[in-house]
């Protein structure tokens, strides 16, 4: 049952991800964005299979619920028809494709070769996972957490500055 679910979610994730970046039928950025949303959701499914419920929820909440909406927003604000008229540069695509396939091959063979986690088994989660995460977050990882808050402040200030209207 879980194996089947893994294959389903994994296949969906990869399919959607591929359609997001290289959809042969549509070059509409909205379509890409929607496929990215679907990728995120399937990924959340994989997270659930890994018993990382908290992260699955956060993944959907933040990525699918906020980040991607922002993307959609921006795509809609900008003119997307332009994109559909552009012609691809086949040479660039070939180079890019080959290099990425190369990297993929390296990754794949490395993963294969290194037999990572051969002896490891998925252990059942004891108690509330979220509580443990929260505890670690506010003790051991308190400092990064605070740094992140500064980062968010920076992002906020930055976004406001970049999108204020009053400049020529």
């Amino acid at each position: 049952m879980e194996d089947a679910l893994f294959y389903i979610f994994a296949a969906l994730t990869l399919l959607f991800a591929f359609l997001c970046v290289a959809n042969p039928f549509s070059r509409n950025p909205v379509t890409s964005a929607m496929f990215l949303v679907l990728t995120m959701i399937s990924l959340a499914g994989l997270f659930v299979l890994l018993q990382a419920f908290f992260l699955a929820a956060v993944q959907i909440l933040v990525y699918a619920g906020a980040v991607m909406v922002l993307f959609l927003f921006v795509i809609m604000l900008l003119d997307v028809k332009e994109e559909e008229r552009r012609r691809f540069n086949p040479f660039g695509i070939a180079i890019g494709g080959v290099s990425v396939i190369g990297l993929g091959f390296i990754l794949f063979s490395t993963i294969r070769e290194s037999k990572v986690g051969a002896g490891l088994k998925l252990t059942a989660v004891k108690g509330s996972d979220t509580a443990a995460l929260g505890k670690a977050l506010f003790t051991e990882y308190l400092l990064p957490f605070e740094v992140i808050s500064v980062l968010l402040l920076v992002a906020m200030v930055g976004v406001i500055l970049l999108s204020k209207k009053d400049l020529k």
Partner: peptide, 24 residues
Amino acid sequence: IGLEQYLTVSGLLFCFGLLGVVVR
């Protein structure tokens, strides 16, 4: 299903992302 399968998915996903950056 073990770690290897998850890693493979992750690796492929990484490549797809890179593909998008490089090609689009």
